[in-house]
Simulated assay, not measured.
Amino acid sequence: MRDFIVRWRSMIAALAACAVGLTASAAVAQDTRQNAPGEFDFYVLALSWSPSYCEQASERGNSGRSQQIQCGGRPFSFVVHGLWPQYERGFPEYCQRPSPRLDRRIMNSMLDLMPAPGLIYNEWDKHGTCAGTSARDYFENIRKARAAVRIPPDFIDAKEPRTVTPAEVEDAFVKANPGLSTSAISVICDRTRLTEVRICMSKDLQFRACEEIDRRACRRERLEVPPVRGG
């Protein structure tokens, strides 16, 4: 009986060690995928509704240089928040530490689409380093992705505040963009306002469905849409 107990304990210990080894191997494989630039499945083009961002910044008392540039006199509507590499589940970030230094000339060239220097630098560090391209090519892809999306007319020169449903925002984008479906777009909100529209795109910047992104969409019934500044 004693020999049986000893053998039984040895078998349990061996099985436990094996399980730990398998778990460690799985974690290593996952980490390798997460940290490998260029190893992702698709992009998300995030378009921020600038008037909502500026209202949020004002409520928080933020008055930094980025807020001054974006929330000054120019009437920004949708601006590019970023172009984010994604997995089918989850996403990589900060794939190179330290990240390669972003040339200031590239940053300056993007201010028409991303009107905040801090945002541009952060997007390169957090997301651009995961794209597996040079900084110049990454930001050129941002420009191409933005050019592939037509902003619905009601959001180009929004001079008056209004309320919408998330579905109405999606429908407006789908109507303005042939080939875009509601399964490829997600509307994001804070407690009361429209804050962002996220559009899923393949690596060659074609619209594509993305179930996980769609599941994160805003569930509120009505959203406020602040007017463009100066409107």
Results as ranks from 00 to 15, higher is better:
S109D: 04
H127N: 09
M11Y: 11
P100V: 08
S99D: 09
S183L: 08
L119I: 01
E93I: 02
R136N: 14
Y121R: 04
L102D: 00
S25C: 13
Y53P: 01
I188L: 13
A14V: 07
T192R: 11
R104Y: 04
I120C: 02
S134T: 15
R60W: 09
A17F: 04
W8E: 14
Q56S: 03
S99T: 05
G132F: 07
P85Q: 02
E140P: 07
V79Q: 09
R65P: 10
E93V: 03
Q34D: 13
P75H: 12
D214P: 01
Q70C: 05
T165L: 08
K144V: 03
Q70N: 06
S99Q: 12
I151L: 08
C218H: 06
I199N: 01
D157I: 11
D190R: 01
N122S: 09
A19Q: 02
D204V: 09
I213C: 04
M110T: 01
S202V: 14
R89C: 13
A176K: 00
D157A: 10
I5C: 14
T23M: 14
R136G: 13
E140R: 04
G61S: 13
A176F: 06
S52N: 13
S181G: 06
T129P: 09
Q30K: 10
S25N: 12
V28H: 11
S202W: 15
F207T: 00
E59Q: 15
V28A: 13
M1E: 04
S48G: 04
R143Y: 00
V174Q: 11
K203M: 04
N35R: 15
R229P: 00
N62E: 13
P37C: 15
S109V: 05
A24E: 13
M110L: 06
P51C: 12
S202Q: 15
R191L: 12
A116T: 05
N177Y: 06
V169M: 10
W124T: 06
